[in-house]
Amino acid sequence: MDHTAFIFPGQGAQFVGMGKELADAFASARAVFEEVDAALGENFSSLIWEGSDDDLKLTANTQPALMAVSLAVTRALEAEFGVKVGDATYVAGHSLGEYSALAAAGAISVGDAAKLLRFRGESMQKAVPAGEGAMAALLGATIEQAEAACAASGGVCEIANDNAPGQVVLSGAKAAVEAAAEWSKENGIKKAVLLPVSAPFHCSLMQPAADAMAEALATTELKSPIVPVYANVTAAPVTDPAEIRNLLVEQVTARVRWRESVEKMAAEGVVNLVECGAGKVLTVMNRRTVKGLNGTALGTPSDLEAFAEAQNQA
């Protein structure tokens, strides 16, 4: 498991029914969903598996749901196949996925992660009145071009996600983001697409949510993770609980530096990125960031079996 990082997806990877096969196949995976149900005080699993797409898309549901599926993967890997997160070099997660990474590395309990993510989703939703914020993906843009688009927007418009070469997401006030998207089209950027999101994540308009998370995190127990966690805010590994707490607060308004995180992990010798949870959004993005990185997405029992078998043969 040397040279391996476990990575955890963020919002946008969700789909109704995710994780159901894992829960049916493995008691260890089922136990994670039961833990999340108990923490949230509701039959949350049924919303994930049988609910409506609209309900799952509500950010206060999406965030704990994706974490639950990711942790079902890592717990089943360990319990059924003896593959341990602690044997990896790093863990990292995209936005809310950072909470999944911390829970997988033992820095936070699954129940606390579920409660924090539910609260994080609610706080982000409340931070900006509906319809006042927006996000846009700039395809084919460099960071410098994205920064120029923000500067030309005439309002609050910031880089929210640096996902991969040629994939940068802007966030901010609706009029400013729309102006930046228009500027992009006129200044040689291949495509600017407004995203169907419920709030402008990872920009300074989220400050009320960051303040709320600071209070919630202050009373949550955080331990040192068993492997270093690559933080979104710094694109650097962190193990100190006090620093992790501060970075999680900062993360609400700060840029998700995913491209840099992947580049730096690769520079430090990571060759295998193993995506745990719903879909394979990160695996597809990472291929564009560092050529030659091995990407594996684990979301079903057969994925886990194949991965464990490959580990045993290695």
Rank of each mutant, 00 (worst) to 15 (best):
P241G: 06
A310N: 06
G188R: 12
V274M: 11
D112T: 00
H94G: 01
M206H: 04
G86E: 10
V238F: 06
T239M: 13
A127T: 03
R257S: 05
K291A: 15
L304W: 05
G121Y: 07
A192R: 03
G133Q: 10
S224H: 00
E98L: 11
F307W: 15
G269V: 05
F6E: 02
A65M: 09
A297P: 08
N187H: 15
V32G: 00
V69R: 02
P9S: 02
E78K: 11
A176Y: 06
F81R: 07
N294K: 15
P241V: 10
V238H: 02
N163P: 14
E305K: 15
G86V: 02
P241D: 01
V69C: 14
S153R: 08
N286M: 13
E263V: 14
V177Y: 08
Q313N: 09
Q125L: 12
C157K: 07
E21Q: 13
A209K: 06
P196H: 03
K20L: 14
V233Q: 08
L205E: 04
A212H: 05
V32Y: 00
A130W: 10
A29R: 01
N187F: 14
M135D: 09
K190S: 15
G279K: 10
T89M: 14
N312H: 10
Q145P: 13
S95Q: 05
G166S: 04
Q167K: 11
A308I: 08
C157T: 05
A266Q: 06
A267M: 05
E132A: 13
Q11K: 03
G10Y: 05
A148F: 00
G140V: 13
K115G: 00
P165F: 11
A113E: 06
G166I: 09
L47A: 04
V168M: 07
F307P: 06
A101W: 11
E186Y: 02
A92S: 09
F8W: 05
L56R: 00
H202Y: 02
A212N: 09
L117H: 01
M135P: 13
V169A: 06
A179G: 01
I159Y: 02
N61W: 04
A31R: 09
A152R: 06
S109E: 04
V156I: 15
A181G: 01
Q313Y: 03
G93S: 07
A209T: 03
